[in-house]
């Protein structure tokens, strides 16, 4: 018997024109997520915290826009975010990021209206975890970083996975270039693999102790991290948005990155 391609059925009996069942049925269903690329980065200091992100938005190899912010002020008095004391960065699926940011913003505002005082960063961090976890089975596909000042006025930084697992950290990189930036941060912020020269031989060599860095150093680290990430990752670029929170408020700094 001649075979007409791979769809020839063995059951060609009777009058039936039945479709060959061995034909591959193409699975086509709606996928509710997309990756909009980009990277974010947060570092905390002794009396400040910095949250930064590039401003590129991508869809596959397309650049959607060169300016879509990923860092937001949370709980501000108006649309501009003035009066806010918490920062949030989201990277991953931008629509979920937007929705998450708006929910947290509403929560922080409601807290102030109902309790007559601003929400502490610690409480906000816990609340954000709950929000993420509540959507455990249809997650917000984002890596979030929350920043502010803690009860003692020290820089506070919390990082999250998409389903709400969170941790307070000294520094964190998230998004598509996280794997490029994080090792750099480990080395430059937490002084991993740095040792005190002449402190000993072999295992006796003393590791350099991590201490909070001054703001100027941190800002330069952020810039360096992003300029380097831009070189090696196609989804990162266009602009760098940096937000610095201190006791005197939030400062926003924008600087261009390579647009290639």
């Amino acid at each position: 018997m001649t075979s007409f391609g791979r769809y020839t059925s063995a059951e060609t009996v009777g009058y039936s024109f039945s479709q060959p069942t061995s034909a591959p049925n193409k699975e086509h269903s709606f996928y509710p997520y997309t990756d909009n690329g980009g990277s974010t980065l947060g570092i905390s200091g002794s009396d400040f915290a910095i949250l930064a992100g590039d401003t590129r938005s991508v869809a596959g190899y397309n650049i959607n826009s060169r300016y879509v912010p990923k860092v937001f002020k949370i709980g501000g008095d108006d649309e501009s975010g003035d009066g806010a004391h918490i920062l949030l960065s989201v990277v991953g699926f931008a629509a979920d990021g937007q929705a998450l940011k708006e929910r947290l913003d509403a929560v922080v505002k409601m807290y102030k209206y109902q309790h007559g005082k601003p929400m502490s960063v610690r409480a906000c961090a816990q609340r954000l975890s709950t929000i993420l976890y509540q959507k455990r089975f249809f997650p917000y596909y984002v890596h979030a970083i929350l920043a502010g000042l803690d009860e003692e006025g020290k820089g506070a930084l919390y990082s999250y996975d998409p389903v709400g697992s969170y941790e307070r950290e000294q520094c964190r990189a998230a998004g598509s270039a996280a794997s490029l930036i994080m090792p750099f941060l480990d080395n430059q912020v937490n002084f991993k693999n740095q040792y005190i020269p002449g402190s000993g031989e072999g295992h006796a060599l003393e590791p350099k102790k991590a201490e909070p860095l001054p703001r100027e150093t941190v800002e330069q680290l952020v810039r360096d991290a992003f300029t380097s990430a831009v070189e090696r990752h196609i989804e990162v670029g266009d602009g760098l948005q940096m937000m610095v929170i201190t006791k005197s408020g939030i400062e926003e700094i924008y600087s261009p990155l390579k647009k290639d």
Partner: peptide, 25 residues
């Protein structure tokens, strides 16, 4: 500004959907 079936939004001085994103932009 642009919006799509997933709820993704973005804005730019010039925008295009579909094939236009490749050819017109």
């Amino acid at each position: 500004s642009s919006a799509d079936l997933l709820g993704t939004t973005f804005s730019a001085p010039h925008l295009a959907t579909g094939f236009g994103a490749h050819l017109a932009i």
